[in-house]
Simulated assay, not measured.
Amino acid sequence: MTRSRVRPALFGLLGLFALAAAVDLLSLAFGFESGHAVAKPLLMPLLAAWAALRGAPRLLVAALLCGWGGDTLLLFDADAAFLAGMASFAAGHVCYLVLFTRVGRSRAGALLLAPCYAVALITTVVLLRPDLPAELRLPVAVYSTLLTAMACTATARLGPVAGAGGALFLLSDTLIATGVAHWPQPPRPDLWIMLTYIAAQFLLVRGSLGERRQEPERADSRQVLADPG
């Protein structure tokens, strides 16, 4: 596809993603469940198509499609669907982790992040455990570990944009977990879950694409240093 055709397609896909996000959030704000059921499954395919058109690596597209699987499964009110949705999101976090390791680079202060995220993970899992159904305790602990590792790696390897996405993803799923544990929730919790989730996925994509664009520049700089003449 030529550049003259790519640009309108990019704007179109991003506009459709923004429209689907607005419909979804407004539907949740006003209790319109049908609107949420229609808009939610459209979000990640549109974001994945936009990312792919911008030259996203396959792992990034795969992570978003895993998110789409999780989004769709969580629309069904059944324990099996919840577990399958969690597994789909977990697969997405694995894709993100591998991607961040490949395209990112170690950053100053990265070593300070791991203990902070580890404390947050242990505290959350320990506090939630007594209030979770017994069959969910191990899956939630495993999933939380993958999610926390993804969020930490996003900041440590890609920087603040992807790092903010990882942190928001962690917040979104923590809201889900506290809801399952029947902890007190803010008004319209599903609205806050989806708002933080949509922002998280978009920021992870932007951070990943931005880091990937910098790879050739760093490679050129290393080549110049190695062969100055």
Rank of each mutant, 00 (worst) to 15 (best):
R3F: 00
V6K: 05
A9L: 05
G12C: 03
G12I: 02
G12K: 04
L26E: 08
S27F: 00
L28C: 00
A29T: 03
G31N: 06
S34L: 14
G35E: 05
V38P: 14
V38A: 15
V38Q: 12
L46Y: 10
A48S: 15
A49N: 14
P57T: 09
A63M: 10
A63K: 09
A63L: 06
L64S: 13
L64A: 14
C66M: 10
G67C: 10
W68K: 02
T72A: 15
F82N: 04
L83H: 11
L83W: 10
L83S: 08
G85L: 07
G85S: 07
A87R: 12
A90L: 10
G92D: 01
C95Y: 03
Y96K: 03
F100Q: 09
T101Q: 13
T101R: 13
R102V: 12
V103F: 08
V103L: 07
G104R: 01
R107T: 08
A108S: 13
A110Y: 06
L113M: 07
A114S: 06
P115R: 05
C116I: 13
V119I: 13
L121R: 00
T124C: 06
V125Y: 00
L127K: 00
P130R: 07
P133S: 01
P133E: 01
A134M: 01
A134H: 01
L136W: 00
L136P: 11
L138F: 02
P139T: 05
A141G: 06
A149Q: 07
T153W: 04
V161K: 09
G166Q: 00
T174N: 06
I176C: 11
T178D: 05
T178V: 14
P184Q: 11
P189M: 06
P189Q: 08
W192Y: 15
W192F: 15
L204Y: 11
V205E: 03
S208A: 15
R212Y: 13
Q214T: 08
Q214F: 03
Q214P: 03
Q214C: 05
E215G: 13
E217L: 15
R222N: 07
Q223H: 05
L225Y: 00
